[in-house]
Amino acid sequence: MPARTLIINRYLRTLPPLETLITFEAVARHASFTAAAGELFLTQSAVSKQMRQLEDAMGVPLFERKPRGVALTGAGDELLMTVNVLLGTLYQSVTRIRNVHQSNAVSVLATHALAQFWLFPKLIEFNKAYPDIAVHVHAINEFDDTSLNDFDLGVLYGDGDWATLDSDFLLPEIVYPVAHPGLDVAAIDSLAQLAKANLVQIDTRAWQCMDWPQWFGHLGVDYTPRDKAPVFNQLTLAYRAVQQGMGIGLAWSFMADEALAKGELQRVTGFECRTGKGEYLVSVKHRGRSACAAVFREWLLASMQE
């Protein structure tokens, strides 16, 4: 019997079905068969049946049934650690293969704000020029050079110097305060007055982004947010709050320049922060670009010269 057949049979005899592992992860995360069923669009009885099947395959109990929900046994805890790693690895690999090997598609990684305010309008124009090429944008806020392994291209913030990436400069980082045009900010003409104003805060603990203390720090001013200041953990949410007149917020030039020109926002003081860093179009070094990725890259860089 061929060796490959022996390996496949060993997996089939030993490993539980993949769908039971996916369901197990959901049940463990929710500590509930019912909540997992809702997430997976299954009935509660179908989830229970899969978990009985998984426990039978494992030969040990994985859950302690409780009046409200379930708890993992010691064996369940061990299995969950393994399943999380394996499903994460499998997801990343499938995503990378799908993105990289589709002949008529380009996969691009970018932050939420840049994707929404800068990249999206570019995609509309690109689609008009190249309707046969699909651009898949994956927006996340926290990523680095290693994240690009699963994508054709990315727009990465920094100084342009990454050992594993080729990079082309796109946009400088310019950050300034803005407000809704109906907000009365005429009396604010100094950093000291600005610091006392109602400033919409950005919680940047989970990702790399400038907040008000950093912005003031670049201009040589110590600043501590007020206790009751509105706080958002996404730049796009904070910007939306500013657009609705909730207060003064920080805006990046790629987000706000057009809105300022249309009168939809107003600058608050003439102060701005230029960090010397910016957004770069990047791709993994020593990995050939697909024909579609090459077309999109050249088009995007050319559009910046217009």
Rank of each mutant, 00 (worst) to 15 (best):
T5P: 01
T5E: 13
Y11F: 12
Y11D: 04
P16W: 15
P16S: 15
T20S: 14
L21E: 10
L21M: 15
A36H: 04
E39F: 01
L42H: 10
L42N: 06
Q44W: 00
V47I: 09
Q50R: 15
R52I: 02
R52N: 02
E55C: 03
E64Q: 06
P67T: 11
R68K: 09
R68W: 07
A71K: 12
T73C: 02
G74Y: 07
G76N: 06
D77M: 13
D77V: 11
E78C: 08
L79C: 04
L79M: 04
V83R: 06
N84Y: 08
L87P: 10
L90M: 15
L90P: 15
L90T: 15
L90Y: 15
V94A: 11
Q102Y: 05
Q102E: 12
Q102A: 11
V108K: 01
L109H: 00
T111N: 08
A113F: 03
F117H: 01
F117L: 03
W118H: 07
W118A: 00
F120H: 11
F120P: 10
P121L: 09
I124A: 13
E125M: 03
F126C: 03
N127L: 05
A129P: 04
Y130A: 06
P131W: 12
P131S: 12
H136Q: 10
N141I: 03
N141Y: 06
N141T: 04
F143S: 08
T146M: 14
T146I: 14
D150C: 11
D152P: 03
L153N: 00
L153Y: 02
G154E: 03
L156Q: 06
D166N: 11
S167Q: 09
L171I: 13
P172D: 06
P181F: 04
L183R: 04
A187C: 05
L191W: 04
A195K: 02
T204G: 02
W207N: 11
Q208E: 05
M210H: 08
D211T: 07
Q214I: 07
G217A: 11
V221M: 14
Y223Q: 11
T224L: 05
P225I: 09
R226W: 14
D227M: 10
V231M: 10
F232V: 02
Q234P: 08
L235M: 10
T236L: 12
T236S: 14
L237A: 09
L237P: 01
R240W: 11
R240E: 07
A241K: 06
Q244W: 15
I248R: 00
S253Y: 05
A256T: 13
D257Q: 09
A259L: 10
A259V: 05
A259H: 06
K262V: 09
F271W: 09
E272V: 02
R274Y: 02
T275D: 04
T275Q: 08
G276A: 09
G276M: 08
G276V: 09
G276T: 07
K277T: 08
V282M: 01
V282I: 00
R289H: 05
C292N: 03
F296S: 00
E298L: 13
M304D: 07
Q305L: 11
E306Q: 11
